[in-house]
Design a protein around this nucleic acid. Sequence first.
DNA 1: GTTAGCACTCGATATATGAGAGTGCCAATA
DNA 2: TATTGGCACTCTCATATATCGAGTGCTAAC
Lengths: 360, 360
Amino acid sequence: MSFRTLTERENTILSLIVQSYIHDCTPVGSRTLVRRFGLDLSPATIRNTMNDLEEAGLLIQPHTSAGRIPTSLGYRIYVDELMAPKPLSRKERATIRDAVVGEHSGHIRDAATVLDQTVRALGGLTRLLAVSFEPRLDQGTFEKIELVSLGAGKILAVLTIEKGFLRTIVLELEATVNSEALNETSGILNERLSGLPIKIIRESVRERLRDAVAKDPKILKLIVNSSDDIFASPQEDEGIHYWGTPNILSQPEFADRERMVSLMGALEEKEIIVRVLGGHRQEGGLTITIGEENADGEIKFCSVVASPYVVGEVSGSLGVLGPTRMEYSKLVSIVDYTARIVSEVLGEESTEKDLTDEIA
Amino acid sequence: MSFRTLTERENTILSLIVQSYIHDCTPVGSRTLVRRFGLDLSPATIRNTMNDLEEAGLLIQPHTSAGRIPTSLGYRIYVDELMAPKPLSRKERATIRDAVVGEHSGHIRDAATVLDQTVRALGGLTRLLAVSFEPRLDQGTFEKIELVSLGAGKILAVLTIEKGFLRTIVLELEATVNSEALNETSGILNERLSGLPIKIIRESVRERLRDAVAKDPKILKLIVNSSDDIFASPQEDEGIHYWGTPNILSQPEFADRERMVSLMGALEEKEIIVRVLGGHRQEGGLTITIGEENADGEIKFCSVVASPYVVGEVSGSLGVLGPTRMEYSKLVSIVDYTARIVSEVLGEESTEKDLTDEIA
DNA sequence: GTTAGCACTCGATATATGAGAGTGCCAATA
DNA sequence: TATTGGCACTCTCATATATCGAGTGCTAAC
């Protein structure tokens, strides 16, 4: 990653500067560094090293005769090679777990509720903007469909997806339908499609149902014609939860009005979140994206620590967004742990006898 | 409202000051007022009147030797007695209507989608924070319930409520259930409860089903025991849509960091919205709340223009929130019109043959 | 290789100054 | 009697100026 290997001293200095700057948001000078960390070197020596680091592109000076601050590349080196993840305290683990698991032990929550409470906890704990995506159900396996007549030609399709996820859709037919025809249709669908991944179904319903015969073919026809919607991947900008805008707006790096407004606008449009966190889904593990590494101009002052969570074949992602000056060593632990807990909680087959409110 | 009747001149001056201040966000002085509006009076005369208005509590000076700005009470008089609602242009009406009605004429949207697009349009048009509540279904009339087995003891209850609103809930039973028993149960429920308001049902299910006999009584029992959830009024802080935080943050009155952060925090917690807009539901019509008239400290610099929308017996509300310095005369027209259109659109029985995605 | 010393830079802070907009008051006016 | 012109005064805002302090780069000495 770095185009030349840093010396031991350079590593130390870089690390200390990053830590100091993360803590203070103040450019750090040679003298301060020596004093604060009780270094056994003179400021002049530090200055020389700083100069080298600056030439290597890891530090910059906001202006002549100010201290140095890390560049994105500087943070990158720090994150990849220098920092040690900071373990969570028992209390922190408990905070996260309690929030994700939820208070009412007798009450099973759906994914939206779980993630909503998760981002609240995550935002509160990190004092940053916490973000999460609901799971993308179209990665999952189709279990079965039920068709319910709602009267006036409306039909409710209820899709059951592995691990207890549910998706409901209202379809409409001009003719009235009887429940017998609905049962027949759902029977055919379940027989032919059960156990297949949603994605596969979306691509191949037509062929799979081509030779199906039903007494009342118009329902089957409706299903096939609407299959893009029924077996759809959810809209990219749906199922996003976030929390902590005041946190992020309080950060000194957003004192600039312009920057703040553009960030908020980007958040509201959700494109940013989708682009930044969307790519993280179903990938390996926790990722850190720093400053200009984010393609989007609006958040080139921001970093993102994100991790996928996995529930069976279905997955989503969660993470935090904040200024590049963030406490990476702590955040990787927090985000990683949160993602694990969410995986765990959403993966539990609901065994409690209570009810979940899938839609408000 | 005002504790003394204002003279003709006082009315004029107050009105002009309000208009000028709304336009400029600059305290307005006597000389400026005369020049800008070509008044046939000398600045000295205006000063006398201004002094009177200040004593009446309708104007204040930010500091000695600055111009005047209206107080909340000043705005109140203006809104109640002086201003004339500004009619919407054809184009503005079209903008609102198009957003609420939606683009795909062949696609029926659910309330959440409609309101989401509505607040976007409303926020964009007013350059303020637009807010809406989804309808409170528990004001509505229960049409029927369908019970669908999802396997593993899970049952999906689908409630149909007048005007095509839908509510689904997952219930859980330790035993497995057969569809016959479910049909029997839903039959009993529909027979006894159909046509009743949800609210009434919530209060009286027990009595109404006391003497009901079913071959498999445990499902009926589950329904009764879970009735608080099934026929619940939705959580106060659910079903809220808002859009336009960047708009509001760009307003000069939120240059103050502190104020901005506290407003954003309040918004995220949603309590503010609930308290401010929540009360407006099912009430007469459009309401305007100005500055300190809002009980909440966080938004004592804000005003709210809100209106209920009504769909049959069910209603919700929508409106805009912004600094007290807002263009009331225009906003009342916009909010009123938007509420009407939303009422209309949500009230339409869905006749299109297409499908709605009720849950993501 | 490390360090002390020194001249220099530059942002931040405090202070002074003047311009401009506005006010209140009072005596003159129609 | 209501209106007005005139005047002294107030207060903010913008600008200019001086000073302080943290920090730098460079060089010569250790």
